[in-house]
Design a protein around this nucleic acid. Structure first.
Lengths: 146, 146
DNA sequence: CAGGATCCCGCTAGATACTG
DNA sequence: CAGTATCTAGCGGGATCCTG
């Protein structure tokens, strides 16, 4: 550590990321994961407790492209592929190609992806649970303004 | 009515809404809350970082418009106002105007907003915590492709 | 101070067509 | 089956100016 460059010192100082700062990489990362498709894909791949009596506890679910496409109703192939690619690039999901005929591609959460899922899994559920309340608040707000 | 418990109503809501369905209102709600500005605003209003070890669930923080604008570096007035409006409409924050000169406007989380914050507060922290890991994965992915 | 109103650019989601 | 490629319309979102 004779001559520490500015870049080195900066790299060490960046152990403390702050998403409140515009230039911080974690801001971009927050923006990436703040996406409905990300939330839904993670919810789909991470839902191991959806089936009562399921024997695969602890093992993240492995899903094919077409399975995901079916479960995430309304998603275009472009968005699904694009989102999956970025998730793969960020190390959140693994993409496995099996050279069958036709080809089979499966996606699975990594440990890192699973850690994010455990953080985000509540969001979809929250939206579904509090939908009524939010709708009521909206109506109240709209009539108050009108 | 008043005899139904919160758990019962929650269970009913879960059956009624499904964010996996494109037409479901909860899908739109999920899209709204899957936004970096929402995440950051909730993080700002919900955290009392000045008091470590405090029972933070008691009183949510009250912040002025300019305070929020300062803390969320890089946010435009348009996006800040727009996001705050939608959060107010959905009953997640309250907007209080105090007729001082000049006028003072403060924002605060509602109980509903606080419940969402408790779900989402981990996201910003997750992004900051796993930034290094994600950056490493990206580099690895990029070199693998190249 | 806390926005409202406008203009406008860029990107991105969506639709469509094609392929290994 | 699981994508890629291409085109385009639409709007998200920034910049700017104005106001109570």
């Amino acid at each position: 550590m004779s001559t520490t460059t500015a870049a080195q010192r900066r790299a060490q100082a960046k152990v403390a990321y702050d998403a409140f700062l515009a230039a911080c990489p974690s801001r971009q990362l927050l923006d990436r994961i703040s996406d409905k498709w990300v939330a839904l894909i993670l919810a789909a791949l991470g839902s191991d407790g959806s089936r009562p009596g399921a024997d695969c506890i602890g093992e993240p679910r492995s899903m094919r492209y077409s399975e995901l496409s079916r479960q995430l109703a309304g998603v275009s192939q472009k968005m699904l592929t694009q989102t999956l690619r970025s998730l793969e690039r960020d190390g959140l999901v693994t993409r496995t190609v099996t050279p069958t005929v036709p080809v089979t591609v499966t996606y699975e959460l990594t440990t890192l992806g699973l850690s994010l899922h455990s953080v985000m899994r509540g969001m979809k559920e929250w939206a579904e649970t509090h939908m009524n309340e939010v709708l009521a608040k909206r109506e109240e707000y709209d009539t108050r303004v009108a």
